[in-house]
Every structure is written in C-alpha cells, then in structure tokens.
Simulated assay, not measured.
Amino acid sequence: MAINLSKGQKVDLTKTNPGLSKITVGLGWDTNKYDGGKDFDLDVSLFLTNAEGKVEGEKNFVFFNNPQNENGSVVHTGDNRTGEGDGDDEQVKIELSAVPANIEKIAFTITIYEATERSQNFGQVSRAYARIVNDVNNEEIIRFDLGEDFSVETGVVVGELYRNAGEWKFNAIGSGYKDGLAGLCRDYGVN
C-alpha cells in the first residue's frame, strides 16, 4: 500500500523496501478550464545534483530534449503536450543502484512551457501529483498530491530523491517558482 505524503515529509525508500532498484516516477496533472485560447503544456525536468545541490554538466539536466543522464540510469520517457486523460502524464525511469556516485540528489520539477507568453500559471493547474512505483511488481510505493497552494507560479519543485547513509529517501517539497524553468536552472546551477 502506498504511503501518502504531505508537503515537507520525508520517507525512506530503499531502507523500507529492501532490494528496490528499478523505479518509475510518474507525474500527473489536470488543467482547469480557462479561455486563454492557447495550449497548456507542462513539462517534467530533473536536476541531478552533487552534494552542493548543483548540476555538474548538461547531461545531468534531464528533460524531453535530453532524455537521459550520461550512463542511462535516469531516463525521461517522453513529453506529453496536453495532459489529457487519466494516469501519469510524464514518467521517469530510474535504476537507483546505477545512479553515479557523484549524484546526491535528483530533483523533480514541473514547469509550464511558455507560461509568460501564454499567460498561464499553476493557479490554473489542479490534481498535480508525483508517485513512485516499484518496477518489479508495479506497486505504488509513495504518492504525493501537491494540492492547490499555487497561484502565480510557473514552476514547481515537486520532490527530491536523495542519498542518506547509502540509502535513497524521498522528500515531498511542493515549492513554487514564479520565474519557472529559468529560476530552477539558476538555483540548480544550469546555464
């Protein structure tokens, strides 16, 4: 049975699930009805950071145009440009045991493509969530529903997988960014 997390909650991933190695992180959302006349395209990006919280090299910034890190242990499965339908809108496959040793944290973010130009923000997004599934048995281990706490933000740090004493943990963050992808790239050290 999945553990439902609240904002700010941290949970052991590998310690409480011995042998867990291959996971899928699914992220999903719906957009509220609005009359802006433009498509609503949300994108998942991952920042694979060192101990200082910074990305070393462009291959450690994973998104639809750079779908995997240098050794293929983190793979973005593709861009969903509409968010239509039920279930995950975008997914990331991770082989935890193969993530390079210099990667201490994997931050999962969602941004709105061309948010400023299209006058869109996370106040128009509902039912956003992240979930972690064990690939071996397809069991949902963790679920984090972001809630409706956003208004003018155009980017959100959903959560982070991070190493602690040789084990992987998950931190449910749910923190918004008014300057979207540009702000996230700045803070994670991507030029």
Score class of each variant (00 low, 15 high):
Met1Cys: 09
Met1Gly: 14
Asn4Met: 05
Leu5Arg: 03
Ser6Trp: 08
Lys7His: 08
Lys7Cys: 08
Val11Phe: 04
Val11Glu: 06
Leu13Gly: 02
Leu13Phe: 01
Thr14Gly: 04
Ser21Met: 05
Trp29Ile: 03
Trp29Arg: 00
Asp30Gln: 14
Asn32Ala: 13
Tyr34Ala: 10
Gly36Tyr: 04
Phe40Tyr: 09
Phe40Ala: 06
Asp43Trp: 07
Asn50Arg: 09
Glu52Cys: 00
Gly53Phe: 11
Val55Glu: 08
Phe61Met: 08
Phe63Ile: 01
Asn65Cys: 12
Ser73Glu: 12
Val74Gly: 00
Val74Glu: 01
Val74Thr: 00
Thr77Glu: 14
Asp79Leu: 12
Gly83Ile: 00
Glu84Asn: 10
Gly85Gln: 06
Asp89Ala: 12
Glu90Ala: 06
Glu90Tyr: 07
Val92Trp: 06
Ser97Gln: 11
Val99His: 11
Pro100Asp: 05
Asn102Met: 12
Ile106Leu: 01
Tyr113Leu: 04
Ala115Glu: 05
Glu117Tyr: 13
Gly123Tyr: 06
Gln124Thr: 09
Ala128Val: 00
Tyr129Trp: 15
Ile132Lys: 04
Ile132Asp: 06
Asn134Cys: 01
Glu140Ile: 15
Leu146Phe: 10
Leu146Gln: 13
Glu148Asn: 15
Glu148Asp: 15
Phe150Glu: 00
Val152Asp: 13
Gly159Gln: 03
Glu160Asn: 15
Leu161Ala: 13
Leu161Met: 13
Arg163His: 10
Asn164Leu: 14
Ala165Leu: 09
Gly166Cys: 10
Trp168Glu: 08
Asn171Phe: 15
Ala172Tyr: 10
Gly174Tyr: 06
Gly176Trp: 06
Leu181Val: 11
Leu181Arg: 09
Ala182Pro: 03
Gly183Thr: 13
Leu184His: 13
Cys185His: 04
Arg186Phe: 14
Val190Thr: 15
